[in-house]
């Protein structure tokens, strides 16, 4: 299903990052995709199920959660490396990439694991050595 992806700060993301980016608390807060209840029903997923989010720039598996600010058709992923697996690198000569209003495809990903920080680094950014 097609969605407009918005990324941004949340309270739990901000608190989680103060515990360190490698902390389970941070992953719990950030490796999620907030969806409106009716969109979750249409996708056939329940809160906690893995979903795959794909944009023209990349793909990532995150956990579906019920949106606090539900707007059908809009998916929200908190700022962080999971969101940035799919955000847009083009800066339109303004220096800033597009972190909001990105067209994405979201599908259920039964059995797929939400990668931890080091796995995601390997998948989407690369490794040294």
């Amino acid at each position: 299903m097609k969605f407009v992806l918005v990324t941004g700060t949340t309270l739990s993301q901000a608190q989680g990052k103060e515990h360190g980016k490698v902390s389970p608390k941070y992953k719990e807060a950030v490796a999620v995709c907030e969806l409106a209840e009716e969109d979750m029903e249409r996708l056939g997923v329940k809160p906690g199920d893995p979903v795959r989010v794909t944009s023209p720039y990349g793909s990532v598996v995150v956990k579906a959660v019920k949106a606090r600010d539900p707007t059908p058709g809009i998916a929200f992923i908190p700022t962080g490396i999971w969101a940035n697996a799919v955000t847009a690198p083009e800066t339109s000569a303004a220096g800033i990439p597009s972190y909001k209003c990105i067209e994405v495809e979201i599908e259920p990903a039964p059995g797929e694991k939400v990668p931890d920080l080091e796995e995601l680094l390997k998948q989407s950014v690369g490794v040294k050595g």
Binding site: G58, G80, I81, N84, P89, P97, S124, V125
Partner: peptide
């Protein structure tokens, strides 16, 4: 590396 889109952050590797 976490806060820029992965397609940009790739160069850090």
């Amino acid at each position: 590396v976490a806060n820029m889109p992965a397609q940009i952050a790739k160069h850090f590797a």
